[in-house]
Design a protein around this nucleic acid. Structure first.
Lengths: 219, 219, 219, 219
DNA sequence: CATGAATGAGTCTTCATTCAT
DNA sequence: GATGAATGAAGACTCATTCAT
């Protein structure tokens, strides 16, 4: 008999205390192995060994290797999403230039806080199932950013969702280049400034000054 | 058993017609298998079979699987680099806004000409050895773009290399999002326009009008 | 990506000479391991080792363990079917009592020629896919037997197909009991005689004397 | 790790009500899992889960998985044996034709009452230890049948034990074919009749009319 | 007594690579 | 040069059994 469609969801919820410990250890171990050995060498055996557990335990909590990797990726993505969302909420009603800078800063901080981990997870994201998680995180961030943009004090952004998405892709592109070692030191050194300026310029392109907008509306 | 120092260079140059044919078939087969089955199932046996050759023949031309994959990736990257270079040369001395648009168009065209192939090759790029090839291609494109920017008719770009790199990362970020299915239809539909506008705005931020620059220089 | 419906068919036809050798060795080894260690311990590794080959070779010819087992079973069943068919053809037009004896003798000989092998294959037959092979062999034998019965010189068998099937099941039941060691020495010693008598009696129950039949028809 | 001398006896007798309940639930669960998932997927964990117990509890009552399976098989076999025995006792002193029919009916009823269960248990019977249980049940039934045959009103069966054994194997053969789906609808529809006739014919072959026997004895 | 987390040996299966033909 | 059979290390995953809680 064949297996059902291979779930990527965790297999069961830990009910005993030590379960939580094991799951946590597996998460940490996965990131370590991923970081130090790469995705190809990130085997269930190695993860379990690093976690001080047995393969059996790993499979008690995850139906397969991909599910574990997906869980680790999902957690990381949630963290980034949350950080971006937090920053966006804090900028509600501010001028658009400040928003651009704050968004850039928050995103870079979240992604670069643990660069090795972020880099290692790119490989995971490329796996089956990774795209969906990324998509979800991106969507969440687009909403946060769009909401923020719509509240800008000084300008009226014509199409916040589209603008937010393009902006996010831009940030992602640069961060990826940085993490993968493709970025020159000159750019890396001034990345935040560069991206802040870039986004500011971009946002203003797609925006109309509030005053003008109001005037238009009044006519 | 894996060897420790796995050369990534082709084993020999095809000097005979038959060789060239086989190599060509292997390249094409690799892309097909990669596209249709994914990197994990892109095995030497399958590639050879698809190419109508034997595994033995494959190893006649490439020392190992990674070398073949690297060669395929390298060729694709050269193509993109060349396309970008061509476009940049054609824009020498033009206004900066036109450069932004032309660059965007050329890059998108090169990457999206065969989207499945481009997407499949991301997985290859994530492999050991892929980063170096990407780095090389990026560097080449940065030079092309920077040279173009420096020749802009209307503005003087302060630091063309840095600006070029940031711009390239931006383009890469959006293309990647598109290829991986992370882009909303709205953005995808107007991608070229959006990116053209974004880059135009960005370039102008980092630039000083030629007249002003001359004036400044004259003082 | 998941695998296609798991074929039980051999993977490829041997084109080189040594292939045939390997396949033959695998067959023989399978039977040996099955006989000596039982189905549960009949692992691909053990089979390959016994065959003096590597696991890899095994999988070159069979897509999975079950396919190999199925092939071994199928070959055995063909042998039995063929033997029964041969015997039945030889009895065309003979008196029914002689048919019963000849059938019994042929079936017992085929099954008991290599009792360990026959016994070991019962476990295989119980596996997924085994039933189909058995069904096929049974069907073939039923046809052979029914054809024979229909040609009996002395009696007219009313429903040869049904009679043949019941007879075959009877033979199978006794042989199985014998092979699995469930048969008392007394019965085992006279098995052929007993079954011959049983089938003769049964056949005559379901038959009408040719003379009577002709008479009936003539009325 | 498997232990070398794996006792197949239940570890302890259920003396408390709760125990009896658990054991009962385990039995029922085993049959369900066996029926629905097959022997290979009939794991201790699954059985326990289905029984609403924990693996630990399972091992409280059975030293290992095989012992549980053996117990389930044994119970089923006892049931069949008992049914046959009951029927045989009821036929004491009856004419032999009636005995044949009654025996057939009883055996078929017992085996086909729950066909899925019967079929699933074949796999268990093929395991190590299963043969012994089968042998025991067969022996018991042979005694019952032989005793019955010896008491036939109309005929004197020469060797009741042998005749009984051959008859039982015949029944078993047909039932097995039916359960494993090897039987054609035509035969299945009239199975009881066919087997009744077959056995009647067979019994009479091995018998001498009582009158004749008495006459012979008197000479 | 019950629970269920942990264990890890043992399965099947794949695939890069070699080398005799 | 070409072929493709053989190799065997390595990976994912299962499951009977134990034992701390």
């Amino acid at each position: 008999m064949r297996k059902d469609p291979p779930a990527l969801k965790p297999r069961k919820l830990p009910v005993q205390a030590r379960s939580a410990t094991t799951v946590e250890a597996l998460h940490a171990a996965t990131i370590q192995v991923l970081t130090q050995q790469g995705l190809a060498r990130c085997t269930t055996t190695r993860i379990a060994a690093r976690a001080g557990a047995s393969v059996g335990s790993l499979y008690q909590y995850y139906p397969n290797r991909d599910a574990l990797l997906a869980a680790v990726l999902a957690r990381k993505l949630s963290g980034v999403s949350a950080a971006v969302d937090l920053a966006c909420r804090a900028q509600q009603g501010q001028p658009i230039a400040q928003m651009a800078v704050a968004l850039t800063r928050a995103f870079l901080a979240a992604k670069l806080h643990n660069p090795d981990e972020s880099k290692a997870l790119y490989a995971v994201a490329a796996q089956r199932g990774g795209a969906a998680l990324i998509a979800q995180a991106q969507a969440s961030m687009v909403v946060s950013i769009a909401t923020m943009l719509a509240s800008a004090a000084d300008v009226h952004v014509a199409n916040p969702a589209v603008t937010a998405e393009v902006a996010l892709n831009t940030l992602v592109g640069s961060v990826r280049a940085l993490l993968e070692g493709l970025m020159s030191p000159e750019v890396a050194a001034t990345l935040e400034t560069q991206l802040g300026a870039l986004l500011t310029a971009y946002f203003q392109t797609h925006a109309v000054a509030r005053a003008a907008a109001s005037a238009l509306a009044r006519e």
